[in-house]
Computed example of a mutant assay.
Amino acid sequence: AGLLAFHRQDGDEQWRTTFTIITRTGEDAAGEVHDRMPVFVTPASWSTWLAPEKLEKDQVGDVLDLLDVESRAVASTLRTRPVSRAVNNVRTLDRRDAGLIEAVTRGGGDR
């Protein structure tokens, strides 16, 4: 889940766009990799999440509960696998190298 915002800065006529990825405590396999994970929204809840109306105070809890249920459900389906340590070096990795996400055997396979 994320938030998209448009705003003008100090009388500037040009609109600026910002995007925020909402995170939460890592769960299941995602929690094994990192202590935070993105909040997940499934297609079944897109219309609720993307509704353009401002939420009333009494609706906020329902939306937060929905995000919690959705995130836990998706997190329970995630699986991890060891990959090359090369993914840890953003200065030298080639982002187009599909081999970066290929499974490697534990204790070996580092490039």
Score class of each variant (00 low, 15 high):
Asn89Asp: 15
Ser76Ile: 03
Gly99Ser: 08
Ala75Trp: 10
Leu78Pro: 05
Asp97Ala: 04
Trp49His: 10
Leu50Pro: 02
Ser47Asn: 14
Gly61His: 13
Leu66Gln: 10
Trp46Asp: 14
Ser45Met: 05
Ala75Val: 03
Gln59Tyr: 08
Leu93Cys: 03
Gln59Ala: 12
Asp94Phe: 07
Ser45Phe: 02
Leu66Cys: 08
Val69Gln: 14
Thr80Ser: 10
Val63Ile: 14
Glu53Asn: 13
Val83Ser: 02
Phe40Arg: 13
Ser76Ala: 13
Asp94Asn: 15
Thr77Phe: 03
Ser47Pro: 08
Val87His: 06
Asn88Arg: 00
Glu70Met: 05
Phe40Asn: 12
Asn89Lys: 06
Val41Tyr: 02
Gly61Trp: 11
Val87Leu: 05
Ser76Val: 00
Pro38Gln: 08
Val90Cys: 04
Ala51Phe: 13
Leu78Gln: 06
Leu100Lys: 02
Asp94Cys: 07
Pro38Phe: 01
Ser71Trp: 09
Leu55His: 13
Ile101Lys: 11
Arg85Lys: 08
Ala86Ile: 01
Leu50Ala: 06
Ala98Leu: 15
Thr42Met: 00
Val39Arg: 03
Glu56Leu: 11
Pro43Cys: 02
Ser76Met: 01
Ala86Arg: 08
Ala75Gln: 12
Gly99Trp: 06
Trp49Tyr: 02
Val60Asn: 02
Leu50Val: 03
Asp58Gly: 13
Thr77Ala: 02
Asp94Gln: 09
Val63Ala: 12
Ser47Cys: 07
Ala44Asp: 15
Asp94Val: 09
Thr80Arg: 10
Leu64Glu: 02
Val39Cys: 08
Pro52Lys: 06
Ser71Ala: 05
Ser84Trp: 00
Val87Lys: 03
Ser84Gly: 00
Thr42Trp: 00
Asp97Arg: 05
Trp49Val: 05
Ser71Phe: 03
Glu70Trp: 12
Asp68Gln: 13
Pro43Lys: 07
Val74Thr: 09
Arg72Met: 03
Val69Phe: 00
Ser84Gln: 00
Phe40Leu: 11
Ser47Trp: 04
Ser71Asp: 08
Val69Ser: 09
Glu70Thr: 14
Val60Met: 04
Thr42Lys: 09
Asp65Val: 06
Ala86Leu: 09
Thr48Ala: 11
Thr77Glu: 06
Val74Lys: 11
Ser76Arg: 13
Arg91Met: 08
Asp62Leu: 12
Gly61Ser: 14
Gly61Pro: 11
Ala51Asn: 15
Leu66Tyr: 07
Trp49Gln: 05
